[in-house]
Simulated assay, not measured.
Amino acid sequence: MSRNRSAREDVQRAETVRLPYADRTEAGRVLAERLVPLGLEGAPVLALPRGGVPVGYEVARRLGSRLDVLVTRKIGYPPQPELGVGAITEGGAPVFDGGLLARLGLTEDDLAATVAAERAELDRRVGVYRRGRELPDVAGRPVIVVDDGLATGGTARAAVRAMRERGPSRLVLAVPVGAAETVGALEAEVDEMVVPAAPWEFRAVGQWYRDFEQLTDADVTAWLDRARRSGEGPV
């Protein structure tokens, strides 16, 4: 999806994608083919761990790009942690859903302890996944941010805002499937969106995959090591 097409037109086009995907590998290959015509060969691919990494691997392989991670963490509503009220990304400030905070009667200050805990976990994962490497320098270059799907879009929004601050020449968000409403809401955050399937009835990302196993830190590092061995991983 890109800004010069309406969300409705893209959803109609996306209906030709056969869902559910078999797994993240198949989804990544479908996504990669949609990216090929955009002239992004060699652009860094930053995948949101954990689930975005196998998707990003296929994208990087097809485009001849380097794969790395962009670590994000959801900020959950303390009484119900699965309800995301914001997100943080390495190198970026917390991004909150202001409307949801208002409905819950919360302020950003009320979530200071939650943010601190999630920041600590984010830093732990950066250490495990990145092994002392810095984020790739994307200033003046195109960059592709990849995840395995968009539900509410909170972590993706935090990720692309953090990347925008680094000054890429072209910021692309690419996911195999996303809620149509969320896809439309995120268009203004990026230069281009590539979303092969954007269903209107959307409960969770996992419903659009036959195999949607939860990945571990070891899985993420294994995918990155695999990319490195093939010449498409972080340096």
Rank of each mutant, 00 (worst) to 15 (best):
S2R: 09
R3F: 02
N4D: 10
N4E: 08
R5N: 03
S6K: 11
S6L: 11
D10Q: 15
V11I: 14
Q12C: 11
R13D: 13
A14N: 14
A14I: 06
T16G: 07
A22G: 07
R24S: 03
E26V: 14
R29C: 07
E33H: 07
L38M: 14
G39F: 12
L40C: 11
E41G: 15
G42T: 11
A43L: 07
V45M: 08
G52V: 04
G52H: 06
E58P: 15
V59M: 12
A60Q: 10
R61F: 05
R61C: 07
R61A: 14
S65D: 04
R66K: 14
L67D: 09
D68F: 01
D68T: 12
V69Y: 05
V69M: 07
L70V: 05
V71C: 04
T72H: 10
K74Y: 02
P81Y: 00
G86A: 01
I88F: 00
E90L: 01
G92V: 07
A93I: 09
P94M: 13
D97Q: 05
G98V: 05
G99C: 00
D110F: 01
A116I: 00
E118M: 04
E118Q: 13
R124V: 02
R124Q: 10
V128R: 15
R130K: 08
R133S: 05
E134D: 10
E134M: 06
P136S: 05
V138L: 00
G140A: 09
P142M: 02
V146Y: 11
L150I: 15
A151T: 00
R157K: 09
A159P: 13
G167A: 12
P168N: 01
R170K: 07
V172E: 10
V172Y: 09
A174C: 09
A174T: 13
V175F: 02
V177L: 07
G178R: 02
A180S: 12
A185F: 00
A185I: 00
A188D: 12
A188S: 14
P196N: 13
A198K: 15
P199R: 15
W200I: 09
F202Q: 01
R203Q: 01
G206Q: 00
G206C: 01
G206A: 06
W208L: 02
F212V: 04
Q214V: 00
D217E: 13
T221R: 13
A222H: 11
W223M: 08
W223V: 15
W223Y: 15
G231R: 13
E232V: 11
V235K: 10
